[in-house]
Design a protein around this nucleic acid. Structure first.
Length: 586
DNA sequence: GCCGTTTTCGGCCCGACTGTTTTCAGTCG
């Protein structure tokens, strides 16, 4: 059992303990341990074998025993007992807004409610309102929450939320009572999946700002409204929260509402260690007084707060408590990739397979966008549903690309199309086209499209085999995940990254908003191994060139710089790298 | 359940909002 699986089970134990009404700090100990395990380098199995679990901060005697049991047997009696004692419906009820573990426990114990359906019925019969600690409003809110959960998915793709958030931000910018405003929360951190939109504004007339915000046409209903805070539901089912603060508090509030929660906890601890106290109102020279402005360190920007905590500025994307504090303590954070650094995309489709644009049109579009190159990598024949190309059609396509490039040259353009293919990786790791065909292409991307349900070892083996092929430059969308739709296939990322490091193969950061694959969480390891990244649109139509921005956002989140990403390179350097990669491999 | 250069016991991040309550618990972020 690997780190992620162990961490998932520890988190489930934490949730189950909450539902049992256990000591919340005990539950938190399990969550903390889950997090600690995920960020530990190397294999958990090896740590268990060498009896080194005690080295992990947050793992004590009891958790060492449980983790050992999980890793060696794949099971944990304690977990199974907890699960058996908790109706699965209670876990589902946690997803209803306004319902937490304590209320669910009461509902279960007093009314025997174990499913959302039973809960709905009990509310309709008025039974819930009669419970101690509950009332008519709570009952109505639960019903509304059940309904909302039904009609609105509560999680959204970054690509869907970002434009909505930026539009709201523009609204705030345009209001004369607003001094400063910003996006906050997971949206500002560019998480690939977003729960809601968080916005922050500073103003001396907060009520006006809140009124202005709540009256936006995009607002379907106001969920909650106070003097400094308002929550609304936007048309389209996205929730947006606005907090309005005094401008002197803006920097601390922005930091606080940007999170992540884990990053904030680490920062606050750091403040405490320095005899300071950090909260959303500021950084205070006191261990107890929290809102006494005479004790507040004047900080106009986040930079100043980080500085007073002995840290260089940490860009929001990195604030996930994944080592960024140590990095910012050691020195300035290196300049992260900007999307304008990107000069093209090396994995895209045309009307030759399942794309929507013909070659010449693609060239014109991408040239107009100011890009320097664009690889056409249509599907190979195994993807017959996508009209994949066999060797004969592929060779015909090469001729057409050559012709387009000749035209471009005659027009004096520097832009070029690159030839290529997105070749399918078969179940056994073999590729869908012969080596002599692949050898004729500028760029070869190898991806898995079929048999996503194989075991971890089978998927890992086939990806490693593809990486070892002398003609493959790039492994495409490693896990095959579709965010909010399809789980990633089982695979050992570390082993695949190791194989790419050994062979020099590049790994794609697929910028399609549903993929964003390889996951940003694995890039620190890949970067450490010297594996290069390629940010690819996997574009099927012209608008999808815009995915470069999302891909760059994920690269920033992954801590990548311009040098880590090969499609920041100008065409001559890229061509040279593509060729030398092949000669290195063969 | 974890942790310790004040502690092996008594803490564990912290504040706003809501609703049900006459001073607070639960939920949320």
């Amino acid at each position: 059992m690997d780190k992620e699986q162990v961490a998932t089970i520890l988190r489930q134990i934490a949730t189950l303990l909450d539902l049992q009404g256990e000591n919340p700090f005990k539950s938190r100990a399990y969550s903390n341990a889950a997090r600690a395990i995920e960020s530990v380098p190397g294999s958990l199995e090896q740590m268990v074998a060498e009896n080194r679990l005690a080295e992990i901060k947050g793992v004590g005697d009891a958790l060492q025993k449980k983790i050992t049991e999980l890793v060696t047997t794949g099971r944990l009696a304690y977990y199974e007992e907890l699960r058996a004692a908790t109706p699965p419906g209670l876990l589902v009820m946690l997803e209803i807004p306004g319902l937490g573990p304590r209320k669910i426990k009461v509902l279960h114990e007093q009314l025997g409610i174990a499913t959302v359906e039973q809960l709905e019925a009990a509310c309709q019969q008025g039974k819930v309102a009669k419970l101690a600690g509950f009332g008519e409003k709570t009952q109505a809110n639960i019903l509304a929450g059940i309904e909302q959960r039904r009609s609105y998915a509560s999680r959204h793709l970054l690509s869907e939320v970002l434009p909505a958030g930026e539009e709201l931000l523009e609204c705030l910018r345009g209001h004369d009572a607003v001094s400063r405003c910003a996006l906050a929360g997971s949206l500002r951190r560019y998480r690939e999946v977003i729960g809601d939109i968080d916005l922050l504004a500073s103003s001396r007339r907060p009520r006006e700002v809140i009124g202005h915000f709540a009256a936006r046409p995009a607002v379907e209903k106001v969920i909650a409204r106070g003097d400094t805070k308002v929550s609304v539901l936007l048309r389209g089912g996205i929730q947006a929260d606005l907090r309005v603060v005094d401008d002197a508090e803006f920097a601390a509030a922005l930091m606080y509402f940007t999170g992540s929660k884990e990053h904030n906890i680490a920062l606050r601890q750091r403040a405490i260690d320095r005899g300071l106290r950090l909260n959303e109102y500021g950084l205070f020279r006191s261990k107890t007084e929290t809102r006494d402005v005479t004790l507040r360190e004047p900080c106009h920007t986040e930079e100043e707060i980080y500085q007073k905590l002995g840290l260089h500025y940490i860009p929001p994307e990195l604030r996930e408590d994944k080592g960024e504090l140590a990095l910012a303590e050691a020195g300035p954070i290196p300049r992260l990739l900007e999307w304008t650094d990107l000069k093209g995309s090396l994995h895209n489709h045309s009307t030759w397979s399942d794309g929507h644009q013909p070659l010449r049109e693609i060239a014109d579009t991408m040239r107009e966008l100011g890009l320097a190159y664009w690889a056409v990598t249509d599907h190979s024949k195994a993807s017959f549903q996508a009209n994949g190309l066999d060797a004969a059609r592929l060779l015909l396509q090469l001729k057409e690309i050559e012709a387009v490039n000749t035209e471009l040259e005659q027009e004096g353009a520097e832009f070029r199309l690159l030839t290529g293919v997105e070749v399918d990786i078969h179940r056994d790791g073999g590729l869908d086209l012969q080596d002599d065909v692949l050898a004729r292409l500028d760029v070869v991307v190898a991806s898995i499209h079929q048999a996503l349900t194989l075991s971890e070892s089978e998927n890992t083996r086939r990806l490693i085999a593809a990486a070892r092929n002398p003609h493959v430059h790039i492994l495409g969308h490693l896990s095959g995940r579709l965010l909010l739709e399809r789980e990633p296939c089982k695979l050992n990322h570390q082993a695949v990254i190791d194989a790419c490091a050994e062979t020099g193969t590049w790994i794609e950061l697929n910028a399609n908003p549903r993929r964003l694959d390889m996951d940003w969480r694995f890039w620190a390891y890949a970067r450490g191994k010297g594996v290069k990244c390629v940010i690819n649109c996997d574009a099927h139509r012209r608008a999808e060139a815009g995915y470069l921005r999302l891909g760059a956002a994920m690269a920033r989140k992954a801590g990548l710089t311009r040098e880590d990403v090969v499609n920041t390179w100008p065409l001559p350097r890229l061509r040279k790298a593509l060729r030398s990669l092949r000669s290195r491999k063969s």
